[in-house]
Computed example of a mutant assay.
Amino acid sequence: MELTHRFVATNGIRMHVAEQGDGSPVIFCHGFPHTWFIWHRQLAAVAGAGYRAIAPDLRGYGRTEAPAEQEAYTNQAVIGDLLGLLDDIGAEQAVFVGLDFGAALVWELALRAPERVRGIIVLNNPFAPRPPRAPSQLWAKAAQRHFLHLDYFQKPGPADAELGADPRAFLARVYFSLSADYHYLDTWRFPPEGTGYLDVLPEAPPLPWNWLSDDELDVLAGDFEQTGFTGGLNWYRALDRNWELTADFADATVTPPTYFLYGDRDPDMEGFSGRDPLATLRANVPNLRRVTKIDGAGHLVQLERSTEVNDLITAHLRELVPVPVAESTIRS
């Protein structure tokens, strides 16, 4: 079950994927600012449970191509990449796992191509219906009162340069701020005028932390030192276009079987997902099989509570795609 790397030609781009194990495919979708490596602990666990674990660098990240135009970073475009990946491995369906932007991607994939989705497992970012107005309008209004990264990232240039000046230092600060060890919404205390993202993020304590090592951060930072952050930031700049492209799904519900898990200190659940995100989730995902709260975890729950998350993911996979007894016996 060696971890391997390869490139896939899909939907007009060259996509890098990391793979481990054999069996039914499970595709992991990362967010910002991440790469495939954010899932490396889960790949080993899922492969060990009898599945083919696949983690791509999504377009704009890592060793996958980064188109120049912002239009290229819509969910619709990236869904095309994932469907091409399914075709490449000869699979009609896969289980998709998503976090952050990867969660939004998986939710939309389940709306656009439910026939290709065996099931979904989402971490921290619950499904929410299409808002009545373009997202940037909502963020601009909030940004009149306090700094908001969602608004700050909309304009090309300033954030790209700021974050790219020292990728490793930025990653340490943003990962720490999103964890259970800090309260991310404290970044809202800062005024919007003349404020950059690094101005609002706390200084990170020296590594290693109890959930992230120096070597792991080096791997993540190494990719961004090569690419910068513009590819990832373009996902933010495409969110209004996503809104336009999902008009036909305004009243749609997510039909594939779904599992949701979240950290009890996740900032998206607290401040970015509405007043009652779990009620909204249950109302719009009729085949929601289980919701699990993980105590003492923040946004990067799969790193902060790896063992618990791995156990949950593998248990959910066994319900979705049972591993043959003979195969599971051999692996154990």
Score class of each variant (00 low, 15 high):
Gly196Glu: 14
Val122His: 09
Thr10Tyr: 07
Asp181Asn: 08
Val321Ile: 08
Ala315Leu: 08
Gln42Asp: 00
Asp223Glu: 15
Gly48Gln: 00
Gly298Pro: 08
Val321Tyr: 07
Arg173Phe: 00
Arg189Thr: 07
Ala68Val: 09
Ile79His: 04
Trp188His: 12
Val285Arg: 04
Trp107Gln: 04
Arg52Met: 05
Ala159Phe: 15
Thr292His: 12
Asp264Val: 13
Ala283Ser: 15
Arg133Ser: 13
Ile79Lys: 04
Ala110Phe: 02
Asp266Thr: 08
Thr10Cys: 08
Leu281Lys: 11
His34Pro: 06
Trp243Arg: 10
Ala45Gly: 06
Trp235Ala: 04
Leu233His: 04
Trp107Gly: 03
Arg290Asp: 15
Asp199Glu: 11
Val97Gln: 05
Thr227Lys: 05
Thr195Ile: 14
Ile79Glu: 10
Ser213Glu: 03
Gly222His: 00
Leu278Thr: 05
Gly157Ile: 14
Gly298Tyr: 03
Pro256Ser: 02
Asp266Leu: 07
Glu327Ile: 11
Arg168Pro: 00
Arg331Gln: 00
Gln137Thr: 12
Asn75Leu: 13
Ala134Lys: 05
Ala72Gly: 14
Tyr73Glu: 05
Phe7Tyr: 14
Phe28Cys: 02
Cys29Tyr: 12
Gly60Asn: 01
Ala204Ser: 00
Gly164Thr: 09
Ala55Met: 09
His146Ser: 15
Gly263Met: 12
Ser328Thr: 15
Leu201Phe: 05
Phe28Val: 02
Asp100Asn: 07
Ala172Glu: 02
Gly228Pro: 10
Ser328Cys: 06
Trp139Asn: 01
Ile120Trp: 01
Gly164Asp: 03
Pro267Ile: 02
Cys29Pro: 09
Asp266Ala: 12
Pro67Met: 04
Val174Phe: 05
Ala297Thr: 06
Ala113Lys: 14
Asn11Phe: 00
Gly119Ile: 03
His40Lys: 09
Arg289Glu: 15
Arg168Ala: 03
Asp166Gly: 03
Gln93Lys: 12
Glu115Phe: 01
His316Pro: 02
Gln302Ser: 08
Gly296Gln: 06
Ala283Cys: 14
Pro205Lys: 02
Pro167Ala: 05
Pro206Tyr: 04
Gly21Met: 09
Asn310Leu: 12
Phe260Met: 04
Trp39Gly: 07
Phe147Arg: 03
Pro131Thr: 06
Leu281Asn: 07
Leu261Asp: 01
Asp264Pro: 08
Arg290Pro: 13
Leu312Lys: 01
Gln226Thr: 14
Gly231Tyr: 01
Ile79Ser: 02
Arg289Leu: 14
Pro132Glu: 14
Glu308Trp: 09
Asn287Ala: 12
Thr253Pro: 10
Ala326Cys: 07
Arg6His: 14
Tyr197Val: 14
Glu108Lys: 01
